[in-house]
Computed example of a mutant assay.
Amino acid sequence: MTYIITEPCMSEKDASCVDVCPVDCIYEGEDQYYIHPEECIDCGACVPECPVEAIYPDDEVPEQYEAFTAKNYTYFDVPPPD
């Protein structure tokens, strides 16, 4: 499992999540931050730090943000889980 950063990040783009990540797996993209699915250790430290509640476990992403799961995996050229 990994965490997915969703649409609310696009308007805020706050780096609080980056600062608390113990493995530095959160990267800044042009439009938002992304969590590398192969580097994430599933600790969840980023979730409470997000001021706009944009971060979810990949199996709990709300329906309206489901496209962000594929967007995250595509950003890192990693196949999504089955």
Rank of each mutant, 00 (worst) to 15 (best):
P48H: 02
T2D: 08
P51M: 10
K71L: 14
N72L: 02
T74R: 11
P51W: 03
M10K: 14
Y75L: 04
P81N: 07
Y65R: 01
Y56D: 00
E28N: 11
Y34T: 01
E12S: 14
E7M: 02
D77R: 11
P79H: 10
D77T: 09
S16D: 14
Y73K: 07
Q64P: 01
D31P: 02
C46T: 06
H36F: 05
E63I: 02
K71Y: 03
A45S: 14
Y3W: 11
Y33A: 01
Y75E: 13
D19V: 10
P57M: 12
P37Q: 03
I41N: 05
G44M: 01
S16A: 15
D58H: 13
Y34S: 02
C21F: 09
Y73E: 07
C50F: 06
N72G: 10
E12I: 11
D82C: 01
V23T: 13
D19A: 14
E60M: 15
Y73A: 10
V47S: 04
D14Q: 04
C9H: 08
V78M: 08
P62M: 12
C17D: 08
D19E: 14
A67Q: 13
Y73M: 11
C17E: 09
P51I: 05
V78L: 11
Y56F: 15
E38K: 13
A54D: 02
E63F: 03
A45K: 12
D77S: 14
D59N: 15
P37I: 03
V20R: 05
V20E: 07
A54L: 00
E28C: 03
F76S: 05
T69D: 00
M1G: 09
C21R: 09
P57R: 15
P51S: 07
V61W: 05
P22Q: 04
V61H: 07
C43I: 05
T6W: 01
A67T: 13
D58P: 00
I4E: 05
C21D: 05
E38C: 03
C50I: 06
D42K: 09
V78D: 07
E66M: 08
C25S: 15
E39D: 14
D59A: 09
S11A: 12
C17M: 07
E60A: 15
T2H: 08
V20K: 04
Y27S: 08
T2I: 09
T74G: 03
S11Q: 13
I26D: 07
E12Q: 10
T6C: 15
H36D: 15
D19S: 14
C50G: 04
K13Y: 02
D31S: 13
K13A: 06
T74F: 03
I4N: 05
I41E: 12
G29R: 06
D14E: 11
T2N: 09
E53C: 01
D82M: 04
P37T: 02
I41S: 01
F76N: 11
Q32R: 15
E39M: 13
C43R: 13
C25W: 11
P8R: 08
P48C: 02
V18G: 09
E66N: 03
P79G: 08
D58G: 00
M1T: 11
